[in-house]
């Protein structure tokens, strides 16, 4: 019994990842073709309905995204950005953030969605 408990204990201790960021409260869109994305090299960017962006738990305006992402890319050139954007955000605002990514040469993007069951 104790052996099993210890085994489980070690498993959970090793697999636990404490959430480092809280981000913004957003309702991400649904997609049927959503695939699991690898967490390696992943960094999160939250976009709220009003266009406020959150990176590393810091609230910033859209035009400040590029310098931050540029710094992140220099630290890790294989960076993948997971965009967690509210589903009701106007696309124009989202596009401005994408332009900032292009400006910073951060090109691998993952649009975070929840899986829609057919």
């Amino acid at each position: 019994m104790a052996d099993i408990a210890f085994l489980l204990l070690v498993f959970f201790m090793v697999s636990t990842v404490f959430r480092a960021e809280t981000g913004l409260k957003v309702i991400i869109p649904q997609a049927e073709a959503a695939k699991k994305i690898p967490t390696k090299n992943l960094t999160h960017v939250w976009i709220a309905m009003n266009g406020i962006v959150s990176i590393d738990d810091a609230l910033i305006t859209k035009d400040k995204v590029s310098p931050i992402m540029n710094r992140k890319r220099q630290i890790n050139p294989d960076i993948i950005v997971s965009v967690r954007c509210d589903k009701s955000t106007n696309y124009g605002l989202v596009e401005d953030v994408f332009d900032q990514f292009v400006e910073a040469s951060v090109l691998k993007i993952s649009l975070a969605t929840t899986k829609k069951r057919g």
Binding site: S15, V17, A34, K35, S82, F98, F101, K108, S110, L111
Partner: peptide, 14 residues
């Protein structure tokens, strides 16, 4: 406290 990562998304290259 364990949160298993099950991030889903659509990937695109800009």
């Amino acid at each position: 406290t364990t949160v298993f990562s099950n991030e889903m998304g659509l990937q695109i290259v800009l």
